[in-house]
Design a protein around this nucleic acid. Structure first.
Lengths: 103, 103
DNA sequence: ACAATAATTGACCACCTATTCATATGTGGT
DNA sequence: ACCACATATGAATAGGTGGTCAATTATTGT
């Protein structure tokens, strides 16, 4: 597997976005339909401010898109690959491995 | 998409392992066949020590397995889901999005 | 113009993480 | 036993990151 450094950086940046539980939770919340900031915050039981901060990062990396709707702003996942990748990973949760692995 | 907090944590932990460029590079290096530490270090042009540190983390999270071979230790990806997920992501690199996304 | 609701922003802090350097452990050959 | 090679480990450090709190901007309704 030989991948250019630029691509590695691009990929790792994307993984970094998904590496925080709160941020991953946000992504999972708005996988299927546009969801408002407050709704996300309530669902995850974290502050609106925190959600907003995370959404800024997710926006900056183009993982979510947003649209105003009245005074609310609705977010949804903007990346088809990431969406299907996430559903696959969720689907495959909890299958066991065997073999090595110490520590 | 409703996923238990435990699963979210598990997933995000895995993403965190892939979120570092060096570590992701290591994973990509030993996707297909077992590779020695030095070979990885040379391929990525980083110190052996650094590779070893990262491999320890990847071992701890069971993303790679290892086997001694003489005085060398060969590592390879140990998680089938992660392997296929990674090849998919690499394969899908660089397709454009349209729509929103500011900043 | 004013209040009320929704979201964003900025400053600040405690914690975590990647990397380096020096040192140690393990293994095979002589 | 000793040397060389391959990997691993520990300490130390610089920079990054998630979270909170207070203040700000935007939008709607009266």
């Amino acid at each position: 597997m030989n991948v250019a450094q630029a691509h590695i950086n691009e990929l790792s940046e994307m993984f970094q976005m998904l590496s925080d539980p709160t941020r991953l939770g946000i992504m999972l919340q708005c996988m299927d339909e546009p969801v408002g900031v407050s709704a996300i915050a309530d669902a995850l039981d974290v502050s609106h401010s925190l959600v907003s901060h995370h959404l800024r990062l997710l926006r900056a990396t183009r993982l979510v898109r947003h649209q105003r709707h009245g005074r609310a702003v609705r977010y949804q996942v903007n990346d088809e690959h990431v969406r299907t990748m996430l559903s696959n990973m969720v689907e495959h949760l909890h299958e066991d491995y065997s073999e090595t692995g110490d520590e």
